Simulated assay, not measured.
Amino acid sequence: MVEDLPNDFEKIRLTDDESKVIGENSVDDDDSNNQIALSLVGKLLTSKPFNVEAMKRTLISIWKLHDNVSIKMLEPNLFVSQFYSEADREMVLDGCPWFFDGKLIVIREINGEEQPSEVFFHHAPMWVRLVDVPFSKRNKKTLIEIGDFLGTFLEIDDTDPLGWGEFVRMKVMIDVGKPLRRGLFLVVGTASSKWVTLKYERLDEFCFFCGRLDHTDSSCSYKDEASETNAEIVYQYGPWLRASPRKTIRKPASEIEREKKLKERLTSARKVRIPSYNDPDAVKLGPPGVARKLQFPPPRPREASLVKAVGVKRKFKRRNVSSFEGVIDSSLKGGNMKGTGQKRNLREEVPDDLLISETQIVKKQKLENLVLAGDGINQVRGVGLSQPPEKQ
């Protein structure tokens, strides 16, 4: 047995002939490389003995190859499958995982520099079902992130392009040396998360105590360690992690392709979200009375304007003023006005806040292209004469 051979060569005295290294000048044989390229090495994940010949017949039957295949045992639980067609080899790899007698068969490519005793199987692909996935998390980007979290994402079941099924199905390369994941927390919104349950298809034998695939709880070393420390034996895993094999009822290829095109249309014609009243980004106005409190900009100096002098009964000062209707130039000094229209002198009492200059009083101003009110997005403009301050 290979495992019975000593591995510590420091304790072995090698002869001169045994110490020599050969093969340095040899060239790799192309025929040997081609044979390795068409081969796969595999193992049945079990610690119990099994019927090798029955396993061979079962694999040949379920693989349904176009060409021949030869399955040779290197060790009691290590075999090589020699294919004679690249298409058959790829079909077997793509069709993983494979099972025999409810036990997972791990298969991988051969490294020509390895010895059979150095072959280890750390990962295996499995179909995982995500149950009760939130509606907003059934997109491809999120599912790829979930697959990489569980192990290595491989593919999504494309028979349901819209993703509105009872569960989401994906193939993931998982670490067979670690406990199975029973679920995961998925972020929704900004400050909450939801638990998503995981199930594994064709999962038969595994350890209900530690959740690993390569043994059962009857031969679990982790359970033995717990019992030696008088710890409570709690089975954290169970048959509820199993999912029955998916039924082979498939939609017609034309129907699947049609749904894919419809989904592409949904993605390309995505509507802009219209905010509701309670949305923090929505623009909301106050009562109408607030909008009536118009704010006018101060008059620009040295510009012509339309004015009409009138009096109001407030805090008065008696001044000599001119009443004028028309366009005037208020930049002239000495109380003079220049412009077109009718002008007359009068003695009138006017409030202090309406005395803008020595010669004119602005009580009503023509509104033309003037912003009356706004909320930063919508603006109200006016054309005409403004109202007196007491009526605003």
Rank of each mutant, 00 (worst) to 15 (best):
N369Q: 12
K178T: 08
V307I: 15
K391N: 14
P116N: 03
F149K: 14
V176T: 13
G286D: 10
K366M: 05
R242M: 14
T15Q: 01
V69W: 03
D28L: 08
D132C: 06
E201C: 10
A309K: 05
P239H: 07
Q115D: 09
E228P: 00
V312H: 08
P134K: 02
V92C: 04
E303S: 15
C207V: 01
D204E: 11
K48H: 04
R302S: 10
I377A: 13
P388R: 08
G341D: 08
L78W: 04
A87F: 06
H122N: 13
E86H: 13
G147Y: 05
D375A: 05
W63H: 05
K137M: 09
A231P: 00
S227H: 07
V350K: 03
L385H: 07
N230F: 12
E358N: 14
R242N: 11
V371Q: 10
K366W: 12
F149A: 15
N33M: 14
M73F: 15
T267F: 08
R258N: 09
P299I: 10
I146G: 01
P288T: 04
N111W: 02
F79G: 00
D157W: 06
R302N: 15
K313H: 06
V383R: 10
K103M: 10
K308R: 12
L186K: 03
V272D: 11
K293R: 13
T159M: 06
E255K: 09
T229V: 10
P288M: 08
N139A: 04
P389R: 14
G95L: 02
S61H: 09
L385N: 11
V234Q: 07
L93W: 06
W195T: 02
D17T: 07
K20M: 01
Y84Q: 13
E390C: 12
I361G: 07
E348V: 15
F135V: 12
T58V: 00
K43W: 00
R181Q: 13
F100H: 05
D16Y: 07
A231M: 09
Y235H: 14
F296R: 13
G211D: 04
S85I: 05
E325R: 10
E3V: 05
D217L: 07
R258L: 10
R319C: 08
S192E: 13
S136Q: 05
L203F: 07
L93V: 14
L38K: 08
K43P: 01
M170I: 15
A226W: 01
V172N: 06
V92M: 04
Y237S: 01
M73Y: 15
I146A: 04
G165I: 06
W127Q: 02
N320L: 12
H123R: 14
T159E: 09
I107Q: 08
W195A: 02
S227R: 14
G112D: 08
L354C: 04
D148A: 05
D157R: 03
P239W: 03
G374A: 06
V21Q: 01
K48P: 01
K317A: 13
K260T: 07
V362N: 01
Q342S: 12
Q236D: 12
I71F: 04
G112N: 07
K317G: 11
D94W: 07
R182L: 02
W98I: 08
L104V: 03
L355R: 06
G376A: 08
K43M: 09
P161G: 10
V176W: 05
D101P: 00
S244H: 10
